[in-house]
Simulated assay, not measured.
Amino acid sequence: MFDPPKYILEGLEKQSPETLREIAKIAAEMADNKERQFETELEEKEIDDRPKDLDRDDAPSNATLATKEINGNRYYYWQWREGEKIKSEYIRPVDPKR
């Protein structure tokens, strides 16, 4: 469970219900913006790292290339969001020789 810093909780406890609701909206917007920024940075990195032999036409729409490490081996996956869920589709090992 997340325990916010004491100085934040002390400040929030002094606020009215209306102000707390507005703060919640602002915090949700900030979280969305940070998540989009992170996803954009990840996509830009993936574009640079994408192997030339992976065909984007084979990917599900709006998917990005992701790598996962399982038992010391790395694998490529297409990854995308459907609503609140993140979906993945296996492609192949990062190092096909392994």
Rank of each mutant, 00 (worst) to 15 (best):
D55K: 07
P93D: 06
A27R: 02
D55V: 05
A27M: 08
Q37D: 09
F38K: 15
K14N: 03
N62L: 11
K14Q: 14
T67E: 11
Y76N: 01
G83F: 09
D58E: 14
N33K: 09
T67C: 09
E89R: 13
L65I: 03
M30G: 06
D3K: 15
V94Q: 02
D53W: 00
E89L: 09
T40I: 15
K25I: 08
L54K: 01
I70W: 00
V94C: 03
K6H: 12
M30E: 05
R36K: 12
N71W: 07
L9H: 04
A63F: 08
D48F: 15
A63T: 06
Q37V: 07
K6S: 12
E18T: 07
P93M: 10
P93L: 09
I86D: 11
D95W: 02
N73M: 03
K52H: 11
P51C: 04
G83V: 00
K87H: 05
I26F: 00
K34P: 00
V94E: 03
D55Y: 05
N73W: 04
E46A: 14
E69H: 02
Y75L: 09
E22S: 12
R98M: 11
N62K: 10
D95L: 05
P4C: 01
A24V: 04
K45M: 10
P96Y: 08
E69C: 07
I86H: 10
K87G: 03
A31I: 07
I23P: 04
P60C: 08
A28L: 09
R81W: 00
I91W: 05
Q15K: 15
E22D: 11
E13D: 14
P17C: 12
K25P: 03
N71D: 13
W80A: 05
I91Y: 01
K25W: 01
P93K: 08
D57E: 15
P17Q: 13
